[in-house]
């Protein structure tokens, strides 16, 4: 459960609030994962298992490696030069760092929402349709149907239904981020990675994103990196606390925020450092 138990894979067992949550199958399994940028080590022997159809929050001070770990799940770290990765990441029992893995298939099934909303400089409709066309949907009727469904699911439909064909860059920050979520869920991934999706938004927009995440939980497994303690407490089922590239504690969210097992975690969640 703590860093001491590193050979074992950290997995919250305590059925503090949600009994069903712990019964859910494991979807991501990380074994002794270390990551180096050149000589600098960013992740140190991380082992963690993430359960299906839950919201798992990664918290920790800046530079603790939480975003880096998140980006290991869809291999976005591959884009950076000089990165070396040791250890294993399994999704649905398959090692995603094995040579035969096709990056495109992986990223199709592991979606991502970034810290800063990044819609393409295309229309709202085309932003989502782009993702769909990539993966073989070309019939206009089908496209329209999925675009509408995705926008509804992202709680954006009512705001944009009259201007689907105007530029996505004309939307507000919060709307842009919900569009990015709609774009990610349009291709029906199993897992959605969210890298501080609300950190650039105002409180109102943030609240809408959080609502949305709770909605999406039914259909998707969500891993979210956040700086915001309250946000983690509000929306996540499980929380993992990282510090200096290590996994310090991983447990049910209520447990982490009420009775953390490690002193460091307590100091951080109560705001004594970080």
């Amino acid at each position: 459960m703590t860093e001491k138990s590193s050979p074992q894979i950290a997995l919250p067992k305590v059925a503090a609030t949600s009994g069903a949550a712990d019964a859910a199958p494991v979807i991501i399994k990380v074994r002794e994962l270390s990551l180096f940028y050149g000589a600098a080590q960013a992740l140190n022997q991380i082992s963690i298992a993430i359960r299906k159809n839950l919201v798992t929050a990664f918290i920790g001070p800046s530079g603790c490696g939480k975003s880096t770990l998140l980006r290991c799940f869809n291999r976005m770290n591959d884009l950076i030069d000089n990165v070396r990765i040791e250890g294993q990441v399994e999704i649905n029992g398959e090692d995603i760092y094995s040579k035969e893995v096709h990056l495109i298939e992986l990223r199709k099934q592991v979606g991502m929402v970034f810290q800063r909303s990044n819609p393409f400089p295309k229309s709202i409709f085309e932003n989502i349709a782009y993702a769909l066309r990539l993966h073989g949907t070309t019939r206009r009727a089908e496209l329209e149907e999925i675009v509408e469904r995705s926008l509804r699911q992202a709680a954006l439909w009512d705001e944009v239904k009259d201007r689907l064909h105007t530029s996505a860059l004309g939307l507000s920050g919060g709307q842009q981020q919900r569009l990015c979520i709609a774009r990610a869920i349009a291709i029906r991934p199993e897992i959605i990675l969210m890298d501080e999706p609300a950190s650039a938004l105002d409180p109102l927009a943030t609240a809408r994103i959080e609502e949305l995440i709770l909605e999406l939980k039914r259909d998707f497994t969500i891993v979210i990196v956040t700086h915001n303690m309250q946000q983690a407490a509000r929306i996540s089922d499980h929380t993992a606390f990282f510090y200096l590239g290590r996994l310090v504690e991983y447990d049910a969210t209520t447990k982490i925020f009420t009775h953390p097992a490690v002193k460091q975690t307590e100091d951080y969640v109560t705001g004594r450092f970080g």
Partner: peptide
């Protein structure tokens, strides 16, 4: 960010 978004959606 455009490139990242596209790659994360699974474009080659």
């Amino acid at each position: 960010s455009y490139t990242q978004a596209a790659l994360a959606l699974g474009s080659s």
